[in-house]
């Protein structure tokens, strides 16, 4: 059953890509963004104090309106970051944000993000978003579309402020902003 869904999702994903490429200016599927989000966990190192215990879950949060549907769950599934099982939380308000390591800030969410930035940095949260000027507003990773490809922009200072170490491999792919 799960396999079937995955297959179905893959088809949709492929269709999405095709659609993205055929329709000028349209964003590629959030499926790809979900994969990116998962992959970011492999190229970013959180400070050792992040987790209290070995099996504490690694929480990926989505702030605002969820654009992924069930895709994040599908991509992340039973994956782990090191030994920490990945959990997904959806937050409507910033106040809800508790223990979280990676936060996707939805484009369709409220405009309160810049105010949040300082708080999130202190919590060592890797912030990802496809909002415009995300990196300039205190975010770490900005996903944007260029030539129908998803491109990565990283604000290294914001990352450093959050005490996050981003792999040079990832940095070479990204455009760096300060």
């Amino acid at each position: 059953m799960r396999l079937l869904i995955r297959l179905l999702l893959l088809l949709i994903y492929l269709g999405g890509i095709n659609m993205a490429w055929s329709q000028e200016g349209q964003a590629p599927s959030y499926e790809l963004k979900a994969v990116f989000i998962f992959n970011f966990t492999k190229f970013v190192e959180w400070p050792p104090t992040t987790f209290d215990s070995e099996d504490q879950p690694f929480v990926i949060g989505v702030l605002g309106k969820n654009p992924f549907g069930r895709m994040l769950e599908e991509v992340v599934g039973n994956e782990k970051v090191d030994n920490h099982p990945i959990r997904i939380r959806y937050y409507n308000n910033t106040a809800d944000i508790g223990n979280c390591q990676l936060l996707f800030v939805s484009d369709r969410g409220g405009d309160g993000f810049p105010r949040l930035a300082g708080l999130l940095q202190s919590k060592h949260i890797l912030t990802v978003s496809d909002r415009k000027n995300f990196c300039q507003q205190g975010g770490v990773i900005h996903l944007y579309i260029q030539n129908q490809n998803i491109k990565i922009e990283i604000n290294t200072e914001n990352a450093r402020a959050s005490d996050l170490r981003i792999s040079s491999k990832l940095l070479t792919l990204a455009s760096i902003s300060k």
């Binding site: 790809l32 190229f43 490809n149 491999k169 990832l170 070479t172 792919l173």
Partner: peptide
Amino acid sequence: SSNTTAALAFQDKES
């Protein structure tokens, strides 16, 4: 292969 993991992970053909 080590250098191209990120490029492959993030679908960056150019890189």
